[in-house]
Design a binder for these strands. Structure first.
Lengths: 116, 116
DNA sequence: ATAGTATGTCGTATATTTACGACATACATC
DNA sequence: GATGTATGTCGTAAATATACGACATACTAT
């Protein structure tokens, strides 16, 4: 067996992994859900809803913002974070494609060189 | 402002985050795609396709296996990893629901107490 | 101007992830 | 049985993520 490393990760794979990473913490999932529910969008209120310190929540917000999944608008003294709906729709499409392709066929079998 | 921490992360949020974490590395995304493409399913061949050592790939495989996203079947000297199609379909549904809910409404606005 | 409030950043401690060589195990083949 | 091969685990080093108190900044209100 040759063990040639033919593949480097594609931009597509890296992009999917990046977004997955952004959602890889329950706090960040919760933040997106909070914003979607329109319950609030103000930084401090978000922190108040989560069992974490304001500092930590701010850090999670920055992570989501770094990927442009949310955007912050300064409104006087407070900051309002809004979902980037368009990007989320795009990302939704990427995940859907990934999962559909992953679940399209029965896996393995003789084609792949195994008996299962 | 009271800063009462009313919410602890729900099982749903934790589940989504867990799966997202599993896909939060391009190598693991690539592994799922490789298995889906039926190109191969044998541990060593998977490692040969990726720009990582066999040890590291094995580690990534164990992570996917721990969440039951893939299953390993020993076939003599080799081990064949197969996608858990049913679980992937379930997960697909979870992600879809999450994204649909996140993108259903225009975010923010006066309801949420901000001006954007 | 002064005081108070909301927010982000810095510093830092701890935990987790990532990566890989070395080793152990288990099967196949000679 | 001895040898070779495929795989997983162990130990460990380095990088990254998580969490939070303390501080700095910027705006509001008195």
């Amino acid at each position: 067996m040759t063990y040639a490393k033919t593949t480097v990760f594609t931009e597509e794979q890296q992009q999917l992994a990046r977004i997955a990473k952004a959602l890889a913490h329950p706090a960040r999932v919760a933040i997106v859900q909070l914003l979607a529910a329109k319950k609030t969008c103000i930084s401090g209120d978000i922190a108040a809803e989560l069992p974490l310190s304001r500092t930590t929540v701010s850090q999670h917000l920055q992570e989501l913002k770094a990927l442009d999944l949310i955007r912050g608008e300064i409104d006087g003294l407070t900051v309002c974070y809004c979902l980037n709906i368009k990007l989320l729709q795009q990302v939704n499409q990427q995940f859907t494609t990934f999962f559909v392709e992953a679940t399209a066929n029965e896996p393995c079998g003789p084609d792949a060189g195994c008996a299962c």
